[in-house]
Design a protein around this nucleic acid. Structure first.
Length: 553
RNA sequence: GCGCCCAUAGCUUAAUUGGAUAGAGCAUUUGACUACGAAUCAAAAGGUUAGAGGUUCAAGUCCUCUUGGGCGCGCCA
């Protein structure tokens, strides 16, 4: 918040300064936090940025602009320094810092949110979307954590977000699933029957078969696909629920592949016809091909096979068209990085259909590499050798698991060592962060025994919070807004884990240095308010990650 | 062979998207509990950001090449 305030006031001054020099081009200087060896609150690179344009030594520009800042922003800027290389270092007035703490205390769990700014942006966040052929594995867990957290962040920023799961329940793999279940069913009575290697090997298929067998039903009347999907979907939903993830909508592939309109046509039929009509697709060798090369794909792709069946791509196109038709202006897809080859072609489709290619934002997350007892575990739904999300959540807990998944940039591979994860109670950074909240609570509890505490914010003398540790802490609390901004810009929630760890670090330093409960009522009251602010921000931050706060640990 | 992604301290990684002396945690060494929780703090040590060029006032970040790794290249989903 402090940063935005300073930035806003400087931008106008900078434009005016440029105009006075006869420059009309726009330059975006960066307002940043200087390295630790420099005491200033912020630094700007404005002078170096325009030195070339003005053909003037950056130090001279810095000096001129610094004088303007000092004159025109005296309400927020206390002091200005010019570094040798042309950076302008800014010292913010204490009142501005205290004011930002008051804002946190007043706005609480709305601090930094912008309910009105983005509410016209209708976002469809599609994630997980695992095939209903088996339980969710740990890789899906990473996608789930990232997608859900990003949705929370965008909602907090005012976006109108819908979380959707695309249910792939109409393709060939459904036939394999049905057959797999049927054979397992037969095996219940006749162990001599072989189970094909390319069928779904997982134990859960046997469980479904046993369930059906126990219901004593006629094998000829059982819809194996329906029964298998029903059971698997239930476990997927349960697993997501235990992971604190709820979808707003479950979109079935059948809606585009099976449901027909009054003319007997599916959505896939119609989108393929229109692509053909628009010359974005053509017939060759009895198959319908999409001219995706025109839009950057490495080769053209088949939409309808020569046997008349549609490919997965065809239903995906119809699905994405449908997303736009439902009024969403921004589509975010979260895919495992093994699907990266698919990005060019789906983006090509979006443009062919006449929609804005930029409106579709695909986030690829690198796969989770899993080790157990030092040995890497391969994850394959078909072989049945995978670690389920449920198993990991049960072992390490929902909070640690989510925090762990969100610790790194989606584009970085994530190493998840199961043995380490089990031990993580004393190593996982989530505890470091949650400990902040526990310590705060402990102080608040003690503080309640005091009769001399001022609770009215207006009556608090914030200027008593004058140590370096306190000032740093408040500044960091205020940087919550910066973290929101960078998360929005990069479409990644991982900045919040980093932010919270850094905040925890600063808090623990403050805790060592500044005793909250003292003989001085005014100081104690002010510090209790600071503690309150810390709790608000930690809670808000953890909330955005889907991690709980604990009063006691 | 072609395409996408990655390479930062012994290990796992961050870096406000091009800024100042590259930050953390774990592990190692040393110190701090007779006041709010030591699941903490203070300090030491650890780096040619894979390598070589280039662009820039400024490069871990952008461009080119090399090396090493992950993944994808079907009328499968």
């Amino acid at each position: 918040m402090i940063r935005q305030q300073v930035l806003t006031s400087l931008v106008g001054m900078f434009v005016k300064y440029l105009h006075s020099k006869g420059v009309r081009d726009s330059f975006n200087f960066v307002l940043e936090i200087p390295p630790k060896n420099i005491n200033a609150d912020f630094a700007i690179n404005a002078a170096m940025l325009i030195a070339k344009k003005l053909k003037t030594d950056p130090k001279i520009i810095a000096k001129e602009f610094a004088e303007i800042i000092l004159k025109e922003a005296s309400n927020i800027i206390e002091k200005v320094e010019i570094a040798g290389n042309g950076f302008i270092n800014l010292y913010v007035k204490n009142e501005v810092v205290y004011k930002s703490l008051k804002k946190i205390l007043v706005e609480k769990n709305r601090y930094g949110s912008m309910p009105k700014k983005n509410n016209k942006k209708k976002v469809l966040m599609e994630f997980v979307s695992a095939n209903p052929t088996g339980p969710l594995h740990i890789g899906h867990g990473r996608g789930a954590a990232i997608g859900d957290s990003l949705a929370r962040i965008l909602k907090y920023l005012g976006y109108n977000v819908t979380k959707e799961y695309y249910l792939n329940d109409a393709g060939n793999q459904m036939l394999v699933l049905a057959e797999s279940t049927k054979i397992r069913y037969k095996q219940v009575t006749d162990e001599g029957i072989d189970f094909p290697v390319n069928y779904y090997q997982g134990e859960y298929i046997i469980d479904i078969a046993k369930r059906l067998f126990s219901e004593d039903r006629d094998i000829n009347k059982i819809d194996f696909k329906y029964e298998a999907v029903r059971d698997i979907l239930k476990t997927i939903k349960d697993d997501l629920k235990n992971f604190a993830i709820e979808f707003d909508n479950w979109f079935s592939e059948s809606e585009v592949a099976i449901v027909k309109d009054e003319n007997g046509k599916t959505k896939i039929d119609k989108v393929c016809e229109s692509l053909l009509h628009e010359n974005e697709a053509y017939m060759k060798d009895g198959a319908l091909w999409l001219s995706s090369t025109k839009f950057g794909d490495t080769k053209d792709r088949v939409l309808r096979k020569s046997n008349g069946e549609y490919t997965y791509l065809a239903s995906d196109i119809a699905y994405h068209k449908n997303k736009f038709e439902r009024g969403f202006t921004k589509l975010i897809n979260l895919w495992g990085a093994d699907h990266h080859g698919y990005v060019a072609r789906i983006k090509a489709c979006v443009r062919m259909l006449g929609f804005d290619g930029e409106a579709l934002h695909i986030i690829l997350y690198q796969l989770v590499s899993l080790t157990r007892n030092g040995q890497s575990v391969t994850m394959s739904t078909r072989s049945g050798e995978f670690i389920t999300l449920k198993e990991v959540v049960n072992e390490v807990g929902k909070d640690a698991c989510r925090f762990f998944f969100l610790l790194r940039d989606p584009n970085s591979p994530l190493e998840f060592d199961l043995e380490l994860a089990k031990k993580c109670s004393n190593e996982n950074p989530v505890f470091y962060v949650q400990y902040v909240n526990a310590r705060c609570n402990s102080i608040i509890r003690e503080g309640k025994n005091r009769k001399d505490i001022i609770s009215d914010i207006e009556a608090i003398n914030f200027s008593l919070l004058n140590t370096k540790e306190e000032r740093n802490l408040i500044k960091k609390l205020s940087a919550f807004c910066d973290t929101l901004a960078i998360s929005e810009k990069t479409m990644s929630p991982h900045h919040f884990t980093t932010y919270l760890i850094e905040l925890a670090d600063i808090y623990h330093k403050f805790y060592e240095k500044c005793r909250v409960l003292t003989d001085d009522s005014n100081l104690t009251s002010a510090r209790l308010k600071l503690i309150e602010g810390v709790m608000i921000i930690v809670k808000n931050g953890l909330n955005l990650l889907g991690v709980s706060t604990l009063d006691k640990m």
